[in-house]
Design a protein around this nucleic acid. Structure first.
Lengths: 285, 285
DNA sequence: CAAATTACGTAATAAAATTACAAAATGTAC
DNA sequence: GTACATTTTGTAATTTTATTACGTAATTTG
């Protein structure tokens, strides 16, 4: 984590390295962070059972210029409402804990991604897609659902899009690429053999290879344009959850980018597609 | 919006109703909100060109007990970093604006959903799924991708899960439900005819109908258990984007809930499934 | 066990915020 | 337009809050 998104987490992590009174202060804050943001240095000191300067020194240890600054940082960190940042669900969790943890993780993943969006790559990807003759979205496993979502989204732009999962199909299609074809690979790890090999094949054609994956991966290496999504995940124990959310939002960004590229005159076309679905639904009362 | 999530917005809105010096203060804050959170009442007063008590009075007008409290509130409001809450992308947006807007929307949708999770329904849904003989995930359109994702996730629990999109298939399967079968319907609007009709058919059997949809919808009405996701969306102009993110996270919650229900002894089983994928990837250096 | 270092608190000082009060400014009635 | 009332604003005093300087206690190290 670069600049702390989460002061409480930092606090907890450093807990063992603190001395006696600092520990007391930390615990007092962790006990009730909300209240800590509202209380004065005097009340926090007495709550923790230490002197005021101890609290002050404590604050400075955590990169604050003083107590008020610390409170501000704390308030900011609490405001995001993300209590359980990258905390894995544990077997001791109950219904009041684990749903919130999962939401917190999702939110903070998106917040992190937002701070560091690869705008240049996104722009180039939009360029490629907007001008494409055909666009193929390839993803396997969890990313298959993302590819599916992308297909749905981009379909609205009058570009022949398709998704495929059969490895044979992937290889054949990839090898058949030509000018104006965009092969869009989606993968969390960027190490899925089938995808990397398909990308290699596509790369040997005149087609453009775009990927939405981890920047330091074999798949990225095969791409003309790689949109780097570097989301930390506890994939050892659990399935990728947050990375696919980020991928989805990035695809929303790309889709919106293409729409913007098409210009205002395109709106009626979108409306027509939307209207085509009207009769599939029960009317709203 | 219940209690303001966004102080800046409130500030801007009230601007016309303020008197001279209050207006000056408001403008000074709006000019550079970040700095306002860091400065003292004296510096803000001089920046705005008013006296310190004026600033103080201003703060009290905005439901703060005083200046420090106001700064805290301001900091909190800024912290979420959500600048463009439910602001739709416009044709005048450029690459520096619209990606951030989309991320902001996604984040705030998740934050809203988090505050109001239907825990009871979630718990019941977990119960049903954990005990199910078979689980069917049905979703169409955008929700098809969500259903797909769910299939992938729940597959790991040794429960025969499947997803289907063919309307005929949906009807036949729904009609064939029996004790221990769970039909899980996913829909943003809850008004998709095909789904509602399938739910009706399933309802007539011994099977359990669970839905992840808008609570006030025909689909919800057909469900034994409805997980209400009430995400506002500008679907008039755009595709549903944020609702499917919320749906995905809720499905993560359900999946995690089922895992927790299975207990710790289940972990090796999950590990085995995970390992089965190892050889499909290039090793990490 | 003594020297050195670190941890901590007391008390003084400084900074910041709030209050009380008075002076302008603005509005209203005649 | 003047007198009165009301609102707005600022000055200065007061209070609250935070910080610093310094000394003592505790802990570590040789």
């Amino acid at each position: 984590m670069t600049s702390e998104t989460n002061l409480l987490g930092q606090l907890e992590r450093q807990l063992p390295d603190l001395n006696k009174s600092e520990t007391k202060v930390a615990q007092a804050i962790l006990q009730n962070p909300e209240e800590a943001t509202r209380s004065s240095i005097a009340s926090l000191a007495s709550l923790a059972g230490v002197s005021e300067p101890s609290v002050n020194r404590f604050c400075k240890k955590f990169d604050a210029t003083g107590f008020p600054d610390f409170k501000l940082k704390l308030a900011r960190s609490l405001a995001s409402g993300v209590r359980y940042v990258s905390r894995a669900v544990e077997f001791s969790d109950d219904i009041n804990t684990f749903p919130r943890k999962l939401f917190d993780n999702a939110i903070s993943a998106l917040m992190t991604a937002r701070e560091d969006l690869p705008l240049a790559a996104i722009e180039r990807a939009v360029d490629h897609i907007a001008q494409a003759r055909r666009v193929f979205f390839f993803g396997l496993g969890t990313s298959a659902a993302v590819a599916r979502d992308a297909e749905h989204k981009f379909f609205r732009f009058n570009v022949p899009v398709s998704t495929h999962e059969d490895p044979m199909m992937l290889r054949m299609l990839s090898a058949s690429g030509g000018v104006g074809d965009v092969f869009f690979f989606i993968s969390h790890t960027g190490r899925t053999r089938v995808l990397v090999e398909a990308a290699e094949l596509a790369r040997q054609t005149e087609a453009t290879v775009v990927s939405l994956t981890y920047g330091e991966s074999p798949l990225a290496a095969q791409s003309h344009c790689c949109i780097n999504v570097d989301v930390e995940e506890d994939t050892d124990q659990y399935m990728p959850m947050t990375s696919r959310l980020v991928q989805l939002v990035i695809l929303d960004v790309l889709a919106s980018g293409v729409t913007l590229r098409r210009g205002e005159s395109f709106t009626p076309y979108l409306a027509r597609i939307k209207d085509s679905l009207k009769d599939t639904r029960f009317p709203t009362n």
